[in-house]
């Protein structure tokens, strides 16, 4: 069995009279330690999938199996625990708490985690060893995203979910962030799922899942993923 498996997952939103299928029978699986990229146009339903996978949203139908457990059956409370111990999130807009320093933002995660990496250590690992006591506003976008990644990684998550992590960054910075994610995947064995609409970065992934109109259009396995440094767009 795969590490992550989605089987016939449906998510429907009722907008008055109309019912919209945000996920219309999604099926895919990701192996442990893989760097997976989910691509699709805006509004294709990528984020819905990611939200359900990250326990931020529940599905209406189907199974979402992560590490052998069907999280679709989780209660809200269990979902929180799932997010707390098993999932790391990285967002497009970093979502750092503005009032906390880089270190404190990481501590926000480590405070509630049982087995975690020290905040200082992880920050050094993402290359922010000397910016630890800076507030988000004092950091550049790339640095903020690094803090965000550090915060996600500090928990030693089973699954690192990144929603357009480079969306708000310039080309070069975006690349370094993707590199950090790829390196993390390779070095720590963390399963990383990245959502993007940028098809150009698919070559770096082990697995590329394309979503179109709320359905999985294709799943492509990449035997030899390229290093991010070699990809240009």
């Amino acid at each position: 069995m795969s590490f992550v498996e989605l089987k016939n997952v449906y998510k429907r939103y009722k907008m008055g009279e109309v019912t919209i299928n945000a996920s219309d029978g999604i099926n895919f699986s990701i192996e442990k330690g893989e760097f997976a990229v989910i691509v699709g146009a805006s509004g294709a339903g990528k984020t819905t999938v990611l939200n359900m996978l990250g326990g931020m949203d529940s599905c209406d139908e189907g199974e979402i199996i992560v590490d052998g457990v069907d999280i679709a059956k989780y209660s809200p409370k269990e979902l929180i625990s799932y997010r707390r111990y098993d999932i790391g999130f990285v967002f497009q807009f970093y979502n750092l708490v503005q009032n906390l320093t880089a270190k404190e933002n990481v501590e926000l995660a480590t405070e509630i985690c049982k087995d975690c990496i020290g905040a200082e250590q992880i920050l050094r690992e993402v290359g922010l060893g000397d910016r630890m006591n800076n507030f988000p506003a004092q950091l550049s976008g790339g640095e903020q995203q690094r803090v965000s990644i550090a915060r996600a990684l500090a928990k030693k998550p089973k699954l690192l979910l990144c929603d357009e992590p480079t969306g708000a960054l310039d080309y070069q910075t975006g690349k370094t962030i993707l590199k950090l994610l790829q390196d993390t995947c390779r070095n720590t064995g963390t399963t990383v799922v990245v959502i993007t609409h940028n098809l150009a970065i698919t070559p770096m992934a082990d697995r590329v899942i394309t979503i179109k109109s709320s359905k999985v259009e294709s799943i492509v396995l990449n035997d030899k993923p390229a290093s991010i440094d070699t990809i240009e767009w």
Binding site: R83, Y85, N95, V97
Partner: peptide, 16 residues
Amino acid sequence: LHELATIKVLGFYDGE
């Protein structure tokens, strides 16, 4: 809202 959503995503229980 943002901040609260963030800590919710980080896995803070409702009580927390």
